[in-house]
């Protein structure tokens, strides 16, 4: 099985996200970086798939040179091949441009080494949250895609994919070659082992420069939503507050 996982390097914020002075990016001066959570799960899923079925997991990212850190991390948790599409513009590309670059990179990788049976994206990135790059790539490649996937079973060349909805589960069946947008909760990602850490050091990262035009979505500025200033009404400091809690439930009509 040839699997491709697309990941994004994102800041790992604490309890507040600050904005850079030019208002175009998150101020990352005091922040670490991580792999966007849904994608970390996609990577884990891919690692489990090749453990069961054999094959390779190619991990692809579009980002700054520093995104090599996320590819090396991927090597420590099951990735086998690594590709970086450099974007050193100092900010994210817009979603159309990102999708276009990834599509071109996939076409190139497939021309060299054969088609990917499964391509996985995260449902959406933790930061920009555009909800579209995976869909755009799948449409450009004319492959089926379903988002929000929290379970994958493989039978021959058919992927049975489960999506949680409010009342239960929707089941989809996609034939390879297919694309899936994966959600956190599909698995619990592993931590790197000692062997993984060694693999991460040795991993070779292919650099794939790609020329792409900007899409139609232009960022003007980032800002903070108006913060609701809340006066917290403390109902008590012991179990004796129960009566006031139930008064409140009664007032709100939920008792």
């Amino acid at each position: 099985m040839r699997v491709l996982v697309c990941v994004k390097r994102v800041p790992a914020p604490g309890s507040r996200i600050n904005i850079s002075p030019d208002q175009l990016n998150v101020d990352t001066a005091h922040l670490g970086f991580t792999t966007s959570p849904h994608e970390e799960c996609a990577l884990e899923e891919a690692a489990q798939i090749i453990e069961q079925h054999g094959g390779t997991v190619t991990v692809l990212t579009a980002g700054p040179t520093e995104a090599e850190e996320q590819l090396r991390y991927a090597a420590s948790v099951g990735g086998t091949d690594f590709v970086l599409i450099p974007n050193n513009s100092g900010g994210d590309w817009d979603p159309e441009r990102t999708a276009n670059a990834i599509t071109q990179a996939i076409n190139k990788l497939e021309a060299e080494d054969g088609q990917f049976d499964l391509i996985m994206f995260g449902n959406e990135s933790a930061d920009a949250g555009g909800f579209q790059v995976g869909v755009r790539v799948a449409v450009a490649l004319d492959r089926p895609i379903v988002n929000g996937i929290k379970g994958i079973e493989i039978n021959d060349r058919v992927f049975t994919a489960r999506r949680e909805v409010d009342t239960g589960v929707e089941v989809y069946q996609l034939e390879a070659p297919a694309v899936l947008g994966v959600r956190e909760g599909i698995n619990l990602p592993r931590y790197p082992t000692m062997k993984g850490r060694l693999a991460s050091k040795k991993a070779e990262i292919a650099i794939a420069p790609i020329e792409v035009h900007a899409g139609g979505q232009n960022k003007v500025r980032l800002h903070r939503p108006e913060e609701r200033v809340t006066e917290t009404n403390v109902l008590g400091e012991s179990a004796a507050a129960a009566a006031r809690v139930v008064d409140l439930l009664d007032e709100l009509g939920v008792l």
Binding site: T232, N233, V234, G236, A241, V245, V246, L248
Partner: peptide, 26 residues
């Protein structure tokens, strides 16, 4: 707590059973 409109500053394992009892009593 600072973002909530209402708060009880106590151990949830003491508060929740008391709330359950109070709901049942009323």
């Amino acid at each position: 707590v600072t973002k909530a409109g209402y708060a009880v500053i106590a151990d949830l394992h003491e508060v929740i059973p008391a709330v359950i009892e109070e709901v049942k009593r009323r």
